[in-house]
Design a protein around this nucleic acid. Sequence first.
DNA 1: TATGAATGAGCGTTCATTCAT
DNA 2: AATGAATGAACGCTCATTCAT
Lengths: 205, 205, 205, 205
Amino acid sequence: MPKIVDKAAKRREILEAAIATFAQKGYHAAKMADIAVAAGMGKGTLYEYFPTKEALPKEIFDLFFAGLDAQLVTLKRSELPPIEIILQGIQLSFADKDEFAVVNPLIMELLGSKALDESLGLSRYFEGWLERLSQFFADTIRAGQEARQINSTIHADAFARMLVSVIDGMGLHYCMFQVDPAFFQLQYQELETMIRHRFLAGNMP
Amino acid sequence: MPKIVDKAAKRREILEAAIATFAQKGYHAAKMADIAVAAGMGKGTLYEYFPTKEALPKEIFDLFFAGLDAQLVTLKRSELPPIEIILQGIQLSFADKDEFAVVNPLIMELLGSKALDESLGLSRYFEGWLERLSQFFADTIRAGQEARQINSTIHADAFARMLVSVIDGMGLHYCMFQVDPAFFQLQYQELETMIRHRFLAGNMP
Amino acid sequence: MPKIVDKAAKRREILEAAIATFAQKGYHAAKMADIAVAAGMGKGTLYEYFPTKEALPKEIFDLFFAGLDAQLVTLKRSELPPIEIILQGIQLSFADKDEFAVVNPLIMELLGSKALDESLGLSRYFEGWLERLSQFFADTIRAGQEARQINSTIHADAFARMLVSVIDGMGLHYCMFQVDPAFFQLQYQELETMIRHRFLAGNMP
Amino acid sequence: MPKIVDKAAKRREILEAAIATFAQKGYHAAKMADIAVAAGMGKGTLYEYFPTKEALPKEIFDLFFAGLDAQLVTLKRSELPPIEIILQGIQLSFADKDEFAVVNPLIMELLGSKALDESLGLSRYFEGWLERLSQFFADTIRAGQEARQINSTIHADAFARMLVSVIDGMGLHYCMFQVDPAFFQLQYQELETMIRHRFLAGNMP
DNA sequence: TATGAATGAGCGTTCATTCAT
DNA sequence: AATGAATGAACGCTCATTCAT
């Protein structure tokens, strides 16, 4: 009988090695040989589990965006007031900064490389996610406006989309440049305060 | 008698070809041959003006960040009230979205590629710029606070750094995903309104 | 207690799988994994019975040429007149066209691949067989000439060798290109008639 | 100004190196590096002239079959009596045995390798040629029969197709096994005599 | 000065073979 | 005995860079 192997576990090992290697060198500079070394296996073994180098980021993104979507679902079930839901949504985005810090530069590198973006369908992937998140924020804002908890002069769709860009920008800066976590916390506080002011403004005549 | 050539003009031509090609295909997928074709010259000629492929983005960034710094200087000379200076600073960042739209994905791709980031010193470059911009915003905020035009509970440094991330996030999204310019304008309006609210909040008792 | 296995049967199974796979894809394109699947066993098992991939065609040829030689022996025992012996020899070559159709392209592919030809000794193998067949034909012709049943102006050795090439050419074309069996039968008739004419020419003054 | 190169000449050089290398080692065993060495250039240069390894045999076959077709055209223009035309056609096939000796094993190897056969369209190529040659022989035979120079009991199409197989078989054997040219000449004589007998048989009652 | 033909180090990928189970 | 997971040598191909003209 042949060696018995937990194929799923091995996939995960390889994926982790790939993530680590991509994080360290970036996608283009990471050679399959590097990943194999990082995974503690022979080059050939990688190809038993993934058909090409491109399949690695593809799978990483699958998992990553699935995780984001799962969080969104959790959030949707929340019973909090609209303002708090939105703020929690933002915080959630910053919560797993570590994972984010690894995946995000990878996304950036591959989004920049048009050919890879295309072949991985990364843009559509990403845009889909942004769309869903925007939609969720916009719906929540509208709900808040109807409940007279959020300033009704706010353009829900535009504000929501702006918020998504804002979150992404901050997340990106956090993980691409070494921002001190404490300082980042301060930045978040300023963002939160600003948003609260805007949501409540005019509600207190 | 040697042919008389406007070296500087040729450098610019090459650089523009490089920018166009990088914009279209990304850095890694763009071959030197592609750039030569775009520039309407032979491959060898490129090497008369730039020693390596890497030298092209290096120079592109030199020009780009020099331009940003120049704008910053202009802004600094402005006699407007602090709030308006900041809003103008933001608007300025979005003004040349076209140039931005080309350079930014390039920056992202190369920041992701650690090896290139390193060898181009891109991170330090970028961080320097972010630092200067943050500093400028922070200084302006403090000036506004001293002049009692900006809410004094704002943490100037944190808010400024947050603002920089926000600007970058919005610019990035604008140029990486096809955002309708009119819709982007709405987003900007929401951002501006939110900032104004925050700056003025508590100043109008 | 070790499992009792019919080693010889298993060898045959593998060989048949190999033949089928080689026939379908050719030697170079056939992977050991394909053969294992065709044989309904694991890749490793193949190596219990055959030391290398090369050993498979080697054995196939062993069996094939042994079969041919056996037929030659049968033919030699025949008591028919020389002309009929030769014609039977030709027909025999075309009889098991199915086996032929599988083995022949394989032979061709490997003869073309000099390295494999060398290491399998295929050429010598083949030449040996051609030699024996030619010899047999030549001897039969000479016998016919002595018996005044075959035109004595025929150069027995040259004619015999020519005949062997002719048989091979027709067999090859039959199995490499889709020749309609009925049309092939017509071709054979023409060949037979031509040979008879030649053998008898001048014997009927 | 760049190096001035006779591109067509270089293509020919490469092709000749490829032919020589394929002849020596066969297609599969011949590495691009080997061909480069044989051509006295770097590996990369090969790819300036041919996009893939497969393109090499493709071009070799293009030239080879174009040559055969040209010979056929020449033959068609001939004013000789039908029998002589056919015999000349056969001789012509054997004339450039040297080129044949190189190309034929290559054809055999690639025809055997189903995948390559497919992607080179070799079979259709080959079958087309066989078809044209058969057709030509058949037409000539029919013309001979009408002119009462060729035995009218011959089935022109079947005989012609048989002849093509015969020619190919002899050519193949000549170049795959070291046949002494003088002995081959004798074989040809036997073939010619046999054909003449058949063509004339019954015409001389 | 300008060129593009030439180059070869380097990478992704394949697959015959091995060997732990 | 049987297996198939693991392996790495080997190969086709790319493309930044060089240099003869």
